[in-house]
Design a protein around this nucleic acid. Structure first.
Lengths: 353, 353
DNA sequence: CCTCCTTGGGAAAGCGGTTTCCGGTACAGT
DNA sequence: ACTGTACCGGAAACCGCTTTCCCAAGGAGG
């Protein structure tokens, strides 16, 4: 097994001391004379020297790696954020260590702890922002410990903790969406939500309600609660359609269903089709996030565009600048995108039922 | 800034030597007497000691981290593989450092080098398997160096290099797909391919051709070459439709278009719609991979299912077992999935044109 | 009872770097 | 010519951990 070449090898080869070699290859505060400098550099290239990051980490106290923790890398929402963050990291010459918790809160804490142990210089946690206060407390402890050791932390979509945060304007976005749907003529609404403990979900529902204003209501019984995933959307929609068939669903006129994210909306679309109905005609459907991979579904999903790429970039940037006195929050605006899944009532192929 | 507690702190607190403390907390070959052992353990918990992985890496020569390099984490194909690999890693108590190269070959080598420097104990490279021999050579050099230092390497879908590999049966899968399509009555084919340098793409085209056997042909001029992405699929399909409109496309009867992956196929679907046509009616369309996120598109895409979860798991497993004498190859079978995007000719809503 | 092994503990030597501290040289100031 | 002071190079300490090497004590065998 070939031994890696060490700085000592370089120093020996260049005929200088270890100290000088170190000063040259990393560019410390101290200056090294031109002649020696060149010799060392030449030796380093000749021997194809590469610094051992572990050794540097141990003495410097931190590693040039930023950790990223997401709930589920397979979800396009998170992979979009991850991709943009990594691109930004690349621009800054940083390595990213990405971990995915499989939506398990306890693993989130574990991974944060692991990355802290590894002396990551910064940590970005993309949140499954919950109301589970015990979990939040443990997470905060871990993150604070990292900060105490000189590390940096940024959260995405998780405003509850006292660290720099990039937040999506979930309420405002959902409100605008509701307003737009009311503008299209809808008066009868239902929603597919994630678990109540997920603040992203509840915020969007709340915002949506406020956007309905006086024009319409979203009765609690019309809110189907399920997993925050594609399958959750499918199940919630199936239940909803069953209730409509049996006449148990309040309200009248064309039904417009708001799924709290696009992935659920797409699952719901399939549920509609599997029930022998046509999305956009028999049931109007809106989502949230404007996931790129799903922009090709037909009919085009009405949704709220979130600039996911910006989320990732901003989060990393927050960890790179100087440490602020108090936690900062960057809010990312949303924008309603109308598609064929919610045609205007009346002049549309949508048939009331 | 709080200083982390070190093993020396633990030793002092327990009143034992550093050596003893080390032996207890990591469980070396040497046995430590029961009484001391308990004292050390108690002190470790009391002080909330955590080993510094960097320090361990430097002395052990490797870190308990497996590196994963993918071309584009935003592509659901790769994120599915990544997710399954990480799940498997989790089962084995391993950390995964995931990096995404943005489909740039030179960055692939860079990341591999970086992970090698970091002394990752294993490395899994999910391939943009190309014909670029210079790149392949550099990659091989880097990987070999890792192996020489006692690390492990596994490749996914990149059979050209002498390391353990998990390979998709691209040819066999594409052949079965072509056979199925011929069985449905199609006789006029076109394809949307990735760059010729991408072996995955060319293999699938080759396999597809062989599956047509005598029944039909796939003329070279009917193969649109574009990026291996959604937008590539869109563009290639747009071009193809233009050629069909102008009568420049050979063959006759209903047209069946094979996109070498689902993401391209979905882009193509949008191109079809944007041209005022209906996928499955005016143009039949098939993909490859059976991406989960895209299973809800309508009409259901005819495709070739690849067990992506298995790819990730097997790849990791290859790096965990004992080092084999010679590179192993695990082949993953494919399975044709028929959907509404390729209705049977004649009894279908598909209209020839 | 004396030697020969075990057995278990600690001192110390690394691992690959960074940084402090010290000494020597060259140059400016007087 | 003499001192003060940058300036630059190297020796050595140190970061946190593992492991070798040495030593003391206890048990078995003769």
């Amino acid at each position: 097994m070939a031994q890696p070449v060490t700085l000592a090898d370089v120093a020996r080869h260049a005929g200088v001391s270890l100290a000088t070699a170190s000063r040259v290859v990393n560019g410390s505060t101290r200056v090294v004379g031109e002649s020696l400098r060149e010799k060392v550099l030449a030796s380093a290239t000749a021997l194809r020297y590469e610094a051992n990051p572990a050794a540097q980490a141990i003495v410097r106290g931190h590693l040039d790696v930023v950790g990223l923790v997401v709930p589920d890398i397979e979800d396009p929402y998170f992979s979009a954020i991850a991709a943009s963050l990594m691109a930004r990291a690349e621009e800054n010459g940083l390595m990213v260590a990405l971990t995915s918790t499989g939506r398990q809160a306890d693993r989130e804490v574990e991974y944060v702890a692991a990355l802290r142990r590894h002396r990551a210089r910064a940590l970005v946690v993309v949140g499954s922002r919950t109301t589970d206060t015990e979990h939040q407390a443990r997470l905060q402890t871990e993150l604070q410990e990292l900060v105490d050791r000189g590390g940096r932390v940024a959260l995405v979509s998780q405003r509850r903790l006292p660290f720099d945060t990039v937040a999506i304007e979930n309420r405002a976005g959902a409100r605008s969406l509701a307003e737009a749907l009311v503008g299209l003529g809808y008066r009868r609404f239902a929603a597919l939500a994630g678990p109540d403990s997920l603040l992203t979900s509840t915020d969007r529902i709340t915002g949506f309600r406020s956007g309905l204003a006086g024009a319409a209501t979203l009765p609690q019984e019309n809110v189907g609660v399920e997993e925050f995933t594609r399958d959750g959307g499918y199940r919630a929609m199936t239940t909803l359609l069953g209730r409509r068939r049996s006449g148990a669903l309040p309200g009248e006129g064309p039904l417009c269903v708001f799924a709290v994210n696009d992935v659920m909306a797409v699952g719901a679309m399939s549920a509609v089709r599997d029930a022998g109905l046509e999305p956009g005609r028999d049931v109007a459907l809106a989502g949230f996030d404007d996931i790129a991979t799903l922009r090709d579904v037909s009919p085009r999903l009405t949704t709220v565009r979130v600039d996911l790429a910006r989320l990732g970039r901003e989060a990393l940037d927050l960890t790179l600048g100087p440490l602020p006195d108090k936690p900062r929050t960057r809010r990312v605006k949303c924008e309603v995108v109308l598609g064929g899944s919610t045609p205007a009532v009346g002049q549309s192929p949508l048939r009331p039922r």
